[in-house]
Amino acid sequence: MTVWDRPEPSNRPVPLDRERIVAAAIALADEGGLEAVSLRKVAGRLDAGPMRLYGYISTKEELFDLMVDEVQAEIVPDEQPDDGREALRALAHRTRQAALRHEWLADLLGGRPAMGPNGLAVAEATLAPLAGLADIDTVMRAVETVSAYFTGAIRREIAHLRAERATGQTKLDWQRAHGPHVTKMLATGRFPSLAKVVHDGTHVDAEASFTTGLEWVLDAVSAQLTGPPA
Rank of each mutant, 00 (worst) to 15 (best):
L88G: 01
A43E: 08
A90R: 15
V22E: 01
D30F: 02
G44N: 13
A92I: 04
R96T: 02
G33R: 11
G33I: 12
D69Y: 06
G33V: 11
F64W: 08
T95V: 04
L28S: 06
V76F: 00
Y56T: 02
V71H: 07
G84K: 14
Y56A: 00
G55A: 15
G33K: 12
V76K: 00
E86H: 04
V68A: 11
L39F: 01
R45W: 08
E35Q: 04
A48Y: 07
S38R: 01
A36R: 15
E74G: 05
L88D: 01
V68G: 07
R45N: 09
I57A: 03
D47S: 15
A43S: 12
A90Y: 11
A25W: 02
R85A: 09
D47L: 15
R52N: 13
E70M: 11
A29R: 13
D83V: 02
E79G: 08
L88N: 02
D82V: 11
E62L: 00
A29M: 13
A92W: 09
E79V: 13
L88Q: 02
D69K: 01
S38Q: 00
G55H: 14
T95L: 02
E86W: 05
V22P: 02
A43F: 15
A90W: 12
A43Q: 11
K41T: 12
P50T: 10
Y56F: 14
E35R: 04
D65I: 09
R52T: 09
L46Q: 06
R45K: 15
A87L: 10
A73W: 00
E31F: 00
F64A: 07
L46I: 08
Q72K: 06
G55L: 12
G44R: 07
S38K: 00
